[in-house]
Simulated scan of single mutants.
Amino acid sequence: MDGLLALVEGAVTTPWIYLALFALAALDSVVPVAPGESLVVTAAVFSATGAPEPLLVVAAAALGAFVGDHASYLVGRSASGSLERWMRPGTRQGAAFAWAGRTLQGRGGVILLASRYVPGARTATTLTMGATGYPLQRFTAFDAGGALLWGGGWTLIGYLGGQAFGDDPLLGLAAGLGMAAAMTVLAEVARRLWGRRARRRGTAAPDEAVDPAG
């Protein structure tokens, strides 16, 4: 166990950790195969004892998330023509696509901010925002704030875990990752409750449509 801890500590205290944080956050925004939150929290736990630098952890994670979200948005935008030809008006797919566009135009910023905390949902949201023609300028403004809050929030959680268990980094890491998992679950619960509330008000998609947030 001590050997594993030393290996993890050696990996996150090298200057290359900032590049790794950027790359994983960007990749996670496009292909959600490994939650970027885990590496952010891990690096932040050890930052409580001096290295890496917490502000640089925030910057690397936020910038990676911002770049990855825009890559996903642009993929959606490039595919919009094909989607529009497939989702013809009058079809169920067309109705779902039209609903997604209307919903995102009205509440896109809120949906984008909320989905950033749910792995997978953030990719679906950014792809759909690109495909439905959500304005890039507005997307960039909301995404900049969302990426910064995401990077800063997970860094703070990890840092607090490291501070609380400074003499036992492994326990601090477990506490930080546990808090991160709890936050992810809460975000997903909140997203589902919002969806149910929207359906009761009649603003959700038709039964055959898919929620663009995942």
Results as ranks from 00 to 15, higher is better:
Asp2Leu: 15
Leu7Thr: 15
Leu7Arg: 15
Val8Leu: 14
Glu9Cys: 07
Glu9Ser: 13
Ala11Thr: 13
Ala11Pro: 03
Val12Ile: 14
Thr14Pro: 00
Ile17Phe: 09
Tyr18Lys: 04
Leu19Pro: 00
Leu19Ser: 06
Ala20Thr: 14
Leu21Glu: 02
Phe22Asp: 03
Ala25Tyr: 02
Ala26Met: 12
Leu27Lys: 05
Asp28Ala: 02
Ser29Met: 07
Pro32Val: 11
Val33Asn: 03
Ala34His: 05
Pro35Arg: 10
Pro35Trp: 03
Ser38Pro: 01
Ser38Gln: 00
Val41Asp: 04
Ala44Val: 09
Val45Arg: 04
Phe46Pro: 06
Ser47Val: 11
Ser47Pro: 04
Ala48Gly: 01
Thr49Leu: 08
Glu53Asp: 13
Leu55Tyr: 00
Leu56Met: 14
Leu56Phe: 08
Ala59Ile: 14
Ala60Tyr: 01
Leu63Ser: 08
Phe66Cys: 01
Phe66Gly: 00
Gly68Tyr: 02
Gly68Ala: 05
Asp69Met: 09
Asp69Phe: 05
Ala71Arg: 07
Ala71Phe: 08
Ser72Tyr: 00
Tyr73Gly: 09
Val75Pro: 05
Ala79Ser: 09
Leu83Thr: 10
Arg85Thr: 11
Trp86Gln: 12
Met87Asp: 03
Met87Leu: 13
Met87Asn: 10
Arg88Val: 11
Pro89Tyr: 01
Thr91Lys: 03
Gln93Ile: 03
Ala95Cys: 02
Gly101Arg: 13
Arg107His: 13
Gly108Trp: 06
Gly109Ile: 09
Ile111Trp: 03
Ile111Tyr: 08
Leu113Ala: 15
Leu113Thr: 14
Leu113Met: 14
Ala114Cys: 10
Ser115Ala: 15
Arg116Lys: 10
Pro119Asp: 09
Pro119Val: 10
Pro119Ser: 05
Ala121Phe: 00
Thr123Asp: 01
Met129Glu: 08
Met129Trp: 07
Ala131Cys: 13
Ala131Met: 07
Ala131Gln: 05
Ala131Pro: 05
Thr132Gln: 13
Tyr134Pro: 07
Leu136Trp: 11
Ala141Met: 13
Ala144Glu: 04
Gly145Gln: 11
Leu148Gly: 01
Leu148Asn: 01
Leu149Ala: 15
Gly153Arg: 09
Trp154Arg: 01
Trp154Asn: 13
Thr155His: 02
Leu156Glu: 05
Leu160Val: 15
Gln163Val: 15
Pro169Met: 08
Pro169Tyr: 04
Gly172Met: 13
Leu173Met: 09
Leu173Asn: 00
Ala174Pro: 02
Gly178Pro: 12
Ala182Ile: 12
Met183Leu: 15
Val185Asn: 02
Glu188Asn: 03
Glu188Cys: 02
Arg191Cys: 11
Leu193Val: 10
Gly195Lys: 02
Ala198Val: 09
Ala198Lys: 10
Arg201Val: 00
Thr203His: 13
Ala205Ser: 11
Pro206Ala: 08
Glu208Phe: 09
Ala209Cys: 04
Val210Pro: 01
Val210Trp: 06
Asp211Val: 10
